[in-house]
């Protein structure tokens, strides 16, 4: 699913991030572990096509990301990746349904109402379909963000620090929910975090060293 080899990233006039070689097979959920400054977010963004210009080779689903044009990368990102961030970053001016349908719209995929129904039911959000984002609790908002990441049937779900602000009980709940949801949709989950609690939960762990 993901293959990273001889990869590094040079920030303009700043640090150079060097990443270890690793491979995360399809269906095996993985975690990129590292302290802040270790470049785990940079690596996650490189894998997710949110950041360009790396050296070396990053392959997702057999495609070398560096070979894509900017427009090609936009499309590839929209169709193959779902993102979940620590702050859920829902679009506050839209309703829950509109937030979900924004994903297929921007990825230029058909917008299917049934999928919205199914996902809301699966994540226990029935009745929140027309709710405004501000009316949601933190947990509900996070589940909407998960639904949004899943709606395009993306092969890869990338999550940046989804649990770091949570206590043990909620951390466990969220990571189980994430793993169950991605598994049931046939997707592979990759989490970037400094949260050591996740190390034992996810099958593949990649340890990143801090750069000085």
């Amino acid at each position: 699913m993901i293959r990273v080899k001889d990869t590094s990233y040079q920030y303009a006039g700043g640090t150079r991030m060097v990443f270890p070689d690793f491979h995360i097979p399809k269906g095996k959920h993985g975690v990129l572990l590292g302290e802040s400054g270790s470049g785990k977010t940079t690596l996650l963004h490189l894998i997710g096509g949110l950041l360009r210009g790396h050296e070396g080779r990053i392959e997702v689903n057999g495609v070398d990301l560096a070979s894509l044009t900017e427009h090609g990368l936009d499309q590839y990102r929209g169709r193959h990746f779902g993102f979940i961030f620590q702050k859920n970053h829902l679009i506050a001016s839209l309703t829950v349904e509109q937030n979900l349908l924004a994903a297929p719209f921007f990825a230029e995929l058909p917008q299917q109402e049934e999928q919205v129904d199914a996902l809301l039911a699966e994540l226990g959000l029935e009745g929140k379909r027309h709710a405004r984002v501000q009316e949601l609790s933190h947990g509900q908002a996070q589940r909407v963000a998960i639904a949004r990441a899943l709606i395009n049937k993306s092969a890869l779900i990338l999550a940046d620090e989804p649990t770091s602000a949570l206590d043990d009980r909620n951390c466990d709940k969220v990571i189980r929910l994430l793993m169950e949801a991605t598994t049931s949709h046939g997707a592979t989950l990759v989490v970037a975090t400094h949260d050591q609690r996740l190390k034992s939960v996810l099958p593949v762990a990649v340890q990143l060293e801090a750069h000085t």
Partner: peptide, 16 residues
């Protein structure tokens, strides 16, 4: 800016 970044992460091109 977060909305805009999220839209781009969902595949929206700059032109959109």
């Amino acid at each position: 800016r977060y909305d805009l970044a999220i839209m781009r992460s969902m595949g929206a091109g700059r032109g959109k």
